[in-house]
Design a protein around this nucleic acid. Structure first.
Lengths: 232, 232, 232, 232
DNA sequence: TATGAATGAGGCTTCATTCAT
DNA sequence: CATGAATGAAGCCTCATTCAT
């Protein structure tokens, strides 16, 4: 019977995306692939990827619930049935996008666990998180704006776990409550700030720097103890 | 029919149901009514309110898109058509809930505009915002978790405007970028912190205090300038 | 129990519209009553009439099926329930309008039956029919445009019978087929011509005259026999 | 999905179902297919056509508004959703039926425009119109009986335009008013006569002939001027 | 003489999904 | 590698109607 791939693990033989190699940098428009080294075949076997791209793009634009498979298919000029050749369900598309795009976060957490739990580690975590956000931005934004929809999707649980893990790495276990809050706040500052500042004036790079600065201050103050935002 | 109550604002003069008085304090659980003064609660004529309560409750639990009018009706043991007697559309239910529940935020903004733009005013704004959040929490949580769904609902625009107005009051117009970020961050700390800390240990009142403390520090530091978290 | 009148025959005591007196001439806009002698009470007990007027007006504008009781009620600034105080069903409203407005046609048929079946009688029937159409135009137009909708309403059967009766009076029983067709054609010319020529140029009175002239010619030719349009 | 067949005109190149060829002659009863050349009628792939047939049949029987998609679907033993696979809306079904069936009228108009505007042309137009009516009868009858319903459907405008075009061809531009009326009357005689005489005695072919004769007389008289119905 | 509240049926439409080809 | 055809469930909404007050 038709539909060999589709499954989570059982990918078709062709081009197993394997570890983490091609990384998909831009992810900007549908069908985007490598940047410098142009992949020659314009549309050959990359349908799966194109679906992911289109789906994410629409999910981000309109929300998960409000995006129908019809729309995704239409945007790609493919039939709905084609989507089902590549993915088992609508949720599966989302999951697959996450598997690819949330890796930076996984890597970050893995890295964090290997470091000593010093202030500098925590600061570096924030720096790296900020950078990661810049890259994988769509997924994060998607999660932020679709919390309710995503809550009882497998992806929701996954994501929550990761954020919590990150939080665990960033806070100082036995700091006072205000310290914990500062840690969370640092995280949120990066997270939400990134999106909130979009609508506001200024050079993107400068803005990112400012956000990071504030977050670092927060974490530093957290370390110092309750004297709020003042390490010294 | 000629004048169903469902109309936006222009309610008919007669039959003034809850023309502003009882303010609905808790609104936490479905069907919750007055706290101190026992409202008789005749279960007749309060259907409109019951719909609002049930709807909000479900919207918060499952998200706006995933909550169907059928569910709302079933929960109230009423037909769907009954909902349509009281409200013109699904969105209208949401809007009406907002009209009632977002007032604290409006009041806060109004108050803020009458004050001199001093640091102390900004601090007081944060304090009051924190208190308001505690009360109207469901609506705010709803907005936070349903951003995508709410984006192209009239309610979305409204809410965004209000948040922006609040931001305008809280930031110092010509502070450096990092100051602006700190202002936003203070707001988010209260906002998101309130929800994020729910899943975490500790006494609610203490947590609120800690969150507020951090936010106040942020705004204070913002005032001091770029020296991040350190006013002096 | 409420709802004393409503029924077809059992009208409330107040102002039994009785025979055919007030005739309702203009029927132009909602609430129109006598022309010269202004009825003083602007809105007292005439609700029944106002409903009929509004209903007919909407039925004509939008069609019977597409006009809802809500719309009628809204236009009168009354509740739907009020309509049900005056009429038992939606169809009843239509029926009542017909009862009042189709009388000219009944009278015409009655008159025709008392006359000798001469050509001149037939010609006079057409003349009077043309005049009747001008007055009761809305109902006729309504029937013409809502044939499908009206077909299985009691009103449909009634109307069909009347038109057939008129046809019987106008045709010459044992004329050749083409004569019969000419008779029908004469009727249709008046009927449809009245509506079709609306969108076209010219003075209304002149147009009516022209239509009548053609119809009279047709009936005259019909009388002459098969020699098509030539009496002599 | 990407390209459902339901699209208005721009059908995809492949899968050209009925791209103009078989013209669907009778279309009288539901499911009727070709007459002389036995179409295999595999009951597979002809669903679109079957929908059109069933729909027209029901539209004619009960009227457009009173025919629900449920009924259509039930009659075909298909789900409502199946209808939506083939057509985008209820109106679309109607439109598609028209596109196929109103062509004879279009052709007639096109032909008329190429002829010199002589009396004989006008007479031939009537003859051909009478023949066309006989064939595409259901659609015309449908329009006649559902004027109100069809008025604000795209199909209504279209049809009106066509009838007006035909009228323009048939009348003599600068004839006196009565001449114009005669032209319209000729059209209506064919149009309405065709339906009105159904309920009446006699051989169909004879009836058609009689109707045509009267119409031709009318147009001839129109040409002669005001002497109504008399060619000589 | 009406209204307020509600109902049950049904309308059109869309969705995620399936499966033979 | 994909399409064409279809389904069952459900969505939002509107309608004519009822009945206690």
């Amino acid at each position: 019977m038709a539909r060999p791939p589709g499954g989570g693990a059982a990918r078709p033989a062709r081009a197993p995306p394997a570890s983490g190699a091609p990384a998909r940098p831009g992810h900007a428009r549908q069908g985007s692939r490598g940047a410098t080294v142009a992949t020659p075949h314009t549309r050959r076997g990359d349908t799966r990827r194109r679906i992911q791209d289109a789906a994410l793009s629409l999910f981000v634009q309109q929300g998960y619930e409000k995006t129908s498979l019809r729309e995704i298919a239409e945007q790609l000029d493919v039939t709905k049935a084609a989507l089902y050749y590549h993915f088992r369900t609508k949720e599966d598309i989302l999951v697959s996008v996450f598997q690819d795009l949330a890796r930076p976060l996984d890597d970050l957490i893995a890295w964090g666990r290997e470091q000593p739990p010093t202030l500098e580690t925590r600061r570096e975590l924030l720096r790296r998180y900020s950078a990661a956000l810049d890259e994988a931005s769509p997924v994060f934004r998607f999660v932020q704006e679709n919390q309710a929809a995503v809550r009882d999707l497998s992806v929701g649980e996954t994501f929550k776990k990761r954020m919590f893990a990150l939080f665990e790495l960033i806070r100082e276990e036995d700091a006072p409550l205000s310290g914990q809050v500062r840690a969370i706040s640092a995280l949120f500052t990066i997270h939400a700030g990134t999106f909130a500042l979009r609508d506001i004036e200024g050079d993107p790079e400068e803005k990112r720097a400012a956000i990071l600065e504030v977050a670092l201050d927060l974490i530093t103050a957290a370390d110092g103890g309750g004297t709020a935002g003042r390490p010294g």
